[in-house]
Computed example of a mutant assay.
Amino acid sequence: MSLKETDGAIVCAGRVYCDLIFTGLTELPRLGEETYAKDLAVEPGGGGFITAANLSALGHKTMLLASMPGGPFGSAILTKMQRSGVDLSLSPFDHSNGAQVTAVIGCRDDRAFLTKRNGTAVPRDMLQTFSTSNARHLHIGELATLQELPELLEIAKAAGMTISLDCSWDENCLLDDRVQNLIAQVDLFLPNEMEAEHLGYLTDPANCPTLTIVKKGKAGATALTANGELTVAAEPVKVVDTTGAGDAFNAGFLSSWLRGADIQTCLQNGNKCGAAAVTRIGGAP
């Protein structure tokens, strides 16, 4: 996209992973034993990209600000990423980059992850270009990205962007005393239920430093607002793979929120996108 074409775009930031998604298991592997999956898929992953791809499918101009996996892992997912409609100009592909891989082990209604990160969450030499992109909104796909690059907040605010943040489970991040201050600086925080509980938001919603949307999987989602709580249940669907469902929810919620819809409508559309994601392999459409 040219500078003019990026006017009003949504920038999604955070590492991209090559997701190796194992499905069809009835239980998680146990130490000392071997478990066999029914199927294996290779998909682009990472909260930033999955949210961007879903926003693109909803008709929004989206850009990705991300460090890409290198070597065969990047090559395995690059074509699918290019077909997503997301502008990848802020996320240059470099074969020499190290591996960024997530093994996703899907088991019935839940899953486990094993991930290898590498280098910085986003390419620092792209921050200046990002600052002049004329984008309207920044979505940060994982708390670890913001913790590593808090200057994203300053850049986005100086450019007049609104900011949203997913959590993405990382115990080291959640135990850091500085995370509450970082969360307080965004306009919208989107943790899942376990993350929100870990931060103390479920036992005392008054602890929430900003508008917080708690994703609860098949139970729907709850908005913790200054006026109290609002929960919208999700419609039941047949679950194929839950990878990226929360990131897809983010896209549905943001799509409505950025258009000025009320919170109930935002929750409903978030639930719809999250439900659609679990009916396919991988979180991106």
Rank of each mutant, 00 (worst) to 15 (best):
S84D: 06
S84E: 03
G85D: 06
G85A: 09
V86H: 09
V86G: 13
D87L: 04
D87C: 11
L88E: 10
L88T: 00
L88A: 10
S89F: 10
S89L: 04
S89H: 14
S89G: 05
L90C: 06
L90W: 12
L90I: 08
L90M: 12
S91Y: 00
S91V: 05
S91W: 00
P92H: 01
P92N: 05
F93H: 01
D94I: 08
D94G: 02
D94Y: 08
H95C: 03
H95S: 14
H95R: 15
S96A: 15
S96E: 13
N97D: 08
G98L: 03
G98V: 08
G98S: 06
G98Q: 06
A99F: 08
A99Y: 04
A99I: 11
Q100L: 15
V101D: 14
V101K: 00
V101M: 03
V101G: 02
V101A: 09
T102N: 15
T102M: 07
T102P: 09
V104E: 06
V104F: 01
I105A: 05
G106S: 14
G106P: 00
G106N: 12
G106C: 15
C107M: 04
C107Q: 11
R108L: 13
R108Y: 01
D109R: 11
D110S: 15
D110L: 02
R111G: 01
R111W: 06
R111N: 00
L114Q: 07
L114T: 09
L114H: 09
T115N: 11
T115R: 03
K116G: 04
R117N: 15
N118V: 07
N118M: 09
G119A: 11
G119Q: 01
G119D: 10
T120L: 10
V122K: 02
V122E: 00
P123I: 14
P123F: 15
R124S: 08
R124Y: 12
R124V: 08
L127T: 09
Q128K: 08
Q128Y: 06
T129H: 10
T129D: 15
T129R: 13
T129K: 09
F130R: 10
F130D: 02
S131R: 02
T132Y: 04
T132V: 13
